[in-house]
Design a protein around this nucleic acid. Structure first.
Lengths: 125, 125
DNA sequence: ATTAAATGAAACCAAATGGTTTCGTAATTA
DNA sequence: TAATTACGAAACCATTTGGTTTCATTTAAT
């Protein structure tokens, strides 16, 4: 059932700002390569390569229509990303509450709020 | 107030699987560089460089304690990621609901054992 | 006072990345 | 049929990335 995890995963695919722009563009509507690259200053070939990376990550699907290739968004792989982020949500909940504590306690000497036990932890390999 | 958006953003920081492992490790507890790198096969220096990338993205904070440097998770920048993903949620909602429509309209009995709420379900562990 | 531990900086390297230009080949149009 | 359009493949290039080893420095332990 699991995909062969081809070379490019979602995390890597969205790392590049150009590719994020591409996803956003395609979220609007399906488009051909030439039309798409009309929205960028770089060459069509460069855009095409970005599209292929996205396709390998499953984030876009392509369909040949005559001599052109239409690309459309497939947001499904973003579920993995959402799931990954959701794991950390409870931590930023914690952080916000400690931030709140910090703000309420005020004072500029930040280090005072770190008790000795921070220094004393016991980690061993 | 806002950071100068130095060289590494969240998207790039989490693109690397090693760095994702690091975040997960640190979500458990604050740890020193040596202890951290004990969890990896690569050199301590390599781990240290990954930690710096994470720090530049604001995902971890470091604190010197004696001769060691403690790193801890700071999940706050992940909010940006969450926000980014959330934009696309409506698209996969559409996709899921059209899947739902498809399943419901289809008279094949394959999916009958899955109650509708499986499709509509919006949270997971 | 030595010695050992913890770490970052630096120099280096191979591979990946993001871009270019050129060329070949279908498909469309004149 | 001939010209044009849409596109990918290929070769190439500079920079970034992810890793290494070596070295210097600060701090802790004997």
């Amino acid at each position: 059932m699991s995909e062969p995890a081809s070379k490019h995963d979602v995390f890597q695919a969205i790392a590049d700002p150009t590719r994020r722009r591409l996803l956003h563009l395609l979220s609007d509507q399906e488009m051909s390569v030439t039309i798409i690259s009309g929205h960028f200053t770089m060459s069509r070939t460069a855009v095409s390569k970005h599209l292929r990376v996205l396709a390998e990550a499953g984030l876009v699907k392509d369909q040949k229509v005559g001599r052109e290739t239409r690309y459309r968004l497939d947001p499904e792989p973003l579920l993995e990303l959402k799931k990954w982020v959701s794991y950390y949500e409870r931590f930023w909940e914690n952080k916000l509450s400690s931030l709140k504590r910090f703000v309420e306690s005020d004072d500029s000497d930040v280090m005072d709020s770190f008790p000795p036990l921070t220094v004393v932890d016991r980690n061993e390999k």
